[in-house]
């Protein structure tokens, strides 16, 4: 059975990526199960999607703990435990163009690593929901059991509901991802039939009664939201052009729903990129149109406020 785990962020089309790959595998004669997993439905929040494909009816359910292929749609997620369960036999595919050998060493990844080859490095600049189609195309090629035509039909079928423009863009990007990984075709093999057989015994504990003041889900520490770097959720980055900023100091700072823009009277505001989620309310609200939106992937120097 193939077990494939996608990691991405809300809004990057990861749920669709799993259904494109699932439909393509189903059309290729496999039994299939695909499912997204997320908590609160938040744009930019980390989420995953899981695809199983076998030759007989799939009984196994739930999150995939021992994947044959992990697809990471967003390099900013590499710090967040997405490598869990990778073995020497499995493959990590990153939607990025860092040389695979360097990445493998940097991450101490036990399995093989694939990134976009140099000739296709522009693919990593893809933004928004189309990332899902791109990654599905790459994953399909890595499995090696899905034809280009079957992938194309799955792309069109699964993205059709997003409108004809999105379907055409998805088709083109999915096929571009498929074509770009020709040298790695069929690199992913099928995993063991029953990965649960080697599962360790649980270190169960018996919960003791805690004081009610501890056992109510209350938060007493102030400003705990500052501990969570919600800036990692951003797919677009607002950038203030000091030459255009009128130094009004109050419009963007007041309307930012995350209080992530700070200004002193008469100065250009500073954006707290650790907590700005990239909603771009400030871009729409700025009276002199001094705030631009840049794709988050552009080099940091392009996005730094002057």
């Amino acid at each position: 059975m193939y077990r494939i785990r996608f990691h991405g962020r809300g809004g990057q089309g990861i749920r669709t990526a799993a259904s494109v790959l699932g439909s393509a595998l189903f059309a290729s004669g496999r039994e299939v199960q695909d499912a997204p997993r997320y908590g609160a439905e938040r744009r930019g929040a980390p989420m995953s999607a899981h695809v199983r494909a076998g030759r007989s009816v799939i009984v196994e359910r739930g999150a995939i703990a021992q994947p044959d292929l992990v697809v990471v749609a967003d390099p900013t997620l590499l710090a967040g435990g997405v490598l869990q369960g990778l073995s020497a036999q499995s493959v990590l595919f990153l939607n990025g163009s860092e040389p695979a050998d360097e990445l493998r060493t940097r991450l101490a990844c036990p399995g093989r690593v694939v990134t976009w080859p140099g000739a296709a490095r522009e693919l990593e600049e893809t933004t928004g929901v189309a990332i899902g189609a791109l990654c599905a195309g790459g994953a399909a090629r890595l499995l090696g059991v899905i034809s280009r035509t079957t992938l194309e039909q799955a792309l069109l079928a699964e993205i059709a509901g997003h409108g004809s423009g999105a379907a055409e863009a998805g088709r083109a990007l999915g096929l571009a991802g498929f074509d770009a990984l020709a040298d790695s075709a069929g690199m992913v093999g099928e995993g063991v039939d029953d990965p649960g057989a080697g599962d360790a015994p649980p270190d169960w504990v018996r919960l003791a009664l805690d004081d009610a003041s501890l056992a109510a889900p209350d938060v007493f520490r102030e400003a705990t939201s500052e501990l969570v770097q919600t800036g990692l959720w951003r797919t677009s980055r607002p950038v203030i052009d000091a030459a255009l900023c009128s130094r009004c100091s109050w419009v963007c700072t007041t309307l930012c729903p995350d209080s992530a823009i700070h200004a002193k009277a008469g100065e250009v505001p500073q954006i707290d990129y650790e907590h700005c989620k990239g909603c771009l309310v400030c871009v729409l609200a700025c009276p002199p149109h001094a705030i631009r939106a840049l794709p988050e992937r552009q080099p940091a120097t392009a996005g730094n406020p002057r």
């Binding site: 169960w204 919960l207 004081d211 003041s213 501890l214 520490r221």
Partner: peptide, 28 residues
Amino acid sequence: ARLLYTAGELRELRKLQAVAGLAPGSPR
């Protein structure tokens, strides 16, 4: 009767409580 709950889960829960400004045994 047993709740399926591991020592590792309890350790993570205690971290959450610490972030929330609570520690076992500490009064509010």
